[in-house]
Design a protein around this nucleic acid. Structure first.
Length: 256
DNA sequence: ATGGTAGCAGGGCTA
């Protein structure tokens, strides 16, 4: 199974990009973030025409997540973090072909010390409890998404700028990610690549993509039970070169 | 510290 995570930054604008990428990359499961669509506007019929079933949880203007699957049903769908009261649509989970998939659009946090940053840390704490519970019932688990956290200095273009006091790389954010990994999860990209300088997000501003001024913040975490079955993982930069692209590229993992 | 670009929505917020 090829499983991918992609922050499309408006599915309304990026539907043609998604269609083109699905045809080219042929993923079996796709998690989308920042669809920015209310559910009655979700293009499930268009995606069904390409062979993908979809489940989704959206809202106007901000946030919004979805899971697509080809060839298998999406079962036991959960929307939002159970027990965590949250008006923002940032989490959706489903079981596909025996693998539990959790798709997250982690809070950005704006700046260290702000109210949004506190919300980010509280949100990640709630995710930790949820994932622990999911893992106890589903040993075969993938937690994917836009984590809005760069795991270590290899994952940022300039560690002096993106330091332990910066948003997306701060000590508390990285500790929250590490705490998730400590449940028995592995960054699939790092099972297959050890070098730095490979990113999944580049700011629209100041020609960030052309200059490769990016961060690797879009991750697929695989559980212990899936670790040895994880045969490949990578980031597909090509859609970032297309006209009017998302600022994020799809990150994928292949599970045998 | 600020501003640069993009999306949504038609001004300012979010990223």
């Amino acid at each position: 199974m090829k499983i991918a995570s992609w922050n499309v930054n408006s599915l309304n604008v990026r539907l043609p990009h998604l269609e083109q990428w699905l045809q080219a990359a042929q993923p079996d499961v796709v998690g989308l973030q920042e669809t920015k669509l209310e559910d009655n506007r979700f293009p499930d019929a268009v995606l069904a025409g390409l062979g993908y079933r979809s489940v989704f949880a959206g809202q106007k203007t901000y946030n919004g997540v979805a899971l697509l699957a080809r060839g298998h049903a999406l079962d036991d769908v959960v929307i939002g973090i159970p027990g965590f009261d949250d008006a923002q649509r940032r989490a959706i989970a489903a079981t596909v072909n025996g693998i539990r998939i959790v798709n997250l659009y982690v809070v950005n946090g704006q700046d260290v010390g702000t109210e949004k940053y506190d919300y980010k840390l509280r949100w990640l704490d709630a995710v930790h409890g949820w994932i622990a519970d999911e893992l106890s019932r589903h040993p075969q688990l993938v937690v994917m998404g836009d984590f809005n956290i760069a795991p270590d200095d290899r994952d940022v273009h300039d560690p002096a700028v993106w330091n332990d006091e910066s948003i997306l790389t701060s000590t508390a954010e990285r500790a929250a990610l590490q705490r998730l990994l400590n449940l028995g999860l592995h960054d699939a990209y790092r099972l297959h690549h050890s070098e730095g300088g490979f990113f999944s997000w580049w700011d629209y501003r100041q020609a960030g993509f052309r200059r490769n001024l990016g961060l690797r913040i879009d991750l697929n975490l695989v559980s212990d039970a899936l670790r040895d079955k994880t045969v490949a993982a990578d980031i597909d930069r090509e859609p970032r070169t297309w006209d009017r692209p998302s600022d994020h590229a799809p990150a994928w993992v292949q599970i045998a």
